[in-house]
Computed example of a mutant assay.
Amino acid sequence: MNILQALFFPPEQPGGVSSMIPYIQERYLKKGWEMELFSLPKRIRNKGTEVVEFSTFDWKVFAGNPTVEKYIQTYKDYLWWTKMRITKSYDLIHGHHPIAALVMKQLFPDTPVIITIHSSYEKELILNGKIAENGPEHQFLTAIYREIEEKVDRIVTVSVSFKQYLSDYVDDFDRIVVIPNGFDEKRFKPFPHENATTQFISVCRLVPAKGLDTLLQACSLLKKNGHPFVLHLIGDGPSRPELEKMAIDLNIYEETIFYGYMLHPEEFMPFFDVFVLPSQAEAFGSVFAEAALCLLALVGTNVGGIAEQIEDGRNGLLVPVGNSVALYHALEKLVIDPSFRYNLARAAWDKAKKTYSMNRVIQQMTKVYEMYRKQDGNSI
């Protein structure tokens, strides 16, 4: 079976789905399947000129809105690039972004196209203060979900909570399949160590939606109450200057290290003790599973896919969104009780190995792929 994985970002893009798909490709190639990757290079901008139309709504009512116009232009660019580069046919196309899936179905209407929706672009924009809830941009971006349902052959998403989120925007909620992300265990090498001072680590894009202001406030309370720690922040983004100033104002700049972007943070993570990320929303939260596979204790917010990964008190700790005092108390427990911290980390590692292994993803995705292989009367 010959499958095209249609990404939006190039595979070398840090984090998330783009960095995961090459490992999936490697597993399928070993199984004897044919699988190729396709994405839109960053340098391709404003090349497409073809008219864009959707069948379930008229996007032109939002014309002139900068966010909508940028989305439509990106659609045109993806269309232009796909026509330029794809010259062969595939048995199945698996899109990993709404634009990728819709473009592929437009150009190859007779080829089965499935999509994995990994996150909510509109929710991220709202949380980062870029658009208003129920504003024109929000209406346009959520209308895309109904267009996807109308056009593609199968919708997959990464958590039960995100499937529930999508139910407000599609007609047939039951058609959506949940397959959580998976991770190649060989990438993660837990390292036995004893840190005299508790080492916290967070890996994310530095934007408001990740709740790092709450984390800095909680760490300030740790210091005020005499609990030593070091906070390692890996990632970059528009909030970095504000967060660095906040660390200075809260008198924790000496305890806080801003690393910027790092290509393979999983190689760095095993040397720390606690992974903490107080996000305001996460469809899945891949970095929690990655941290668990590095044998770190987990602290996250009780939202979305995070709450599906962490069972509070058993394999990590959950706190309410935006509550720095609750986060402080959770971190304090892990600072003062290394045995509790280790037990949480071990339980998180056990769950991640069983639930988020790459083998599990391959098995579940293969069942979906085979549905379309059988339609041709062929066997694997």
Rank of each mutant, 00 (worst) to 15 (best):
K351T: 02
Y372G: 12
S324C: 08
G313F: 01
L318V: 07
E290H: 01
P265W: 08
P278V: 06
D350C: 12
G285M: 08
Y342K: 14
G316Q: 02
G377R: 09
L344T: 08
N359Y: 06
C294P: 04
I310S: 00
L277G: 01
E282H: 00
E266P: 00
K333V: 02
V335Y: 02
V274F: 03
R314C: 10
V325Y: 15
K333A: 10
Q309W: 02
V368D: 04
L344G: 03
T301R: 02
G313N: 08
D312E: 08
G316L: 01
T301Y: 03
R314S: 12
M262F: 14
L293C: 10
K374I: 08
T301F: 02
A348H: 03
N302P: 00
F271W: 15
P278E: 13
A247H: 07
L298K: 00
Q364M: 07
L344E: 07
E311P: 00
N251S: 14
R360L: 09
E311I: 09
V274H: 01
M358S: 08
D376A: 08
I336M: 14
P270Q: 07
E266V: 02
W349F: 15
K367G: 00
L334I: 04
D337G: 02
A330S: 08
N315W: 01
H264Y: 13
F271T: 14
P338G: 07
A352E: 14
V303L: 09
A307E: 15
N323W: 11
M269F: 12
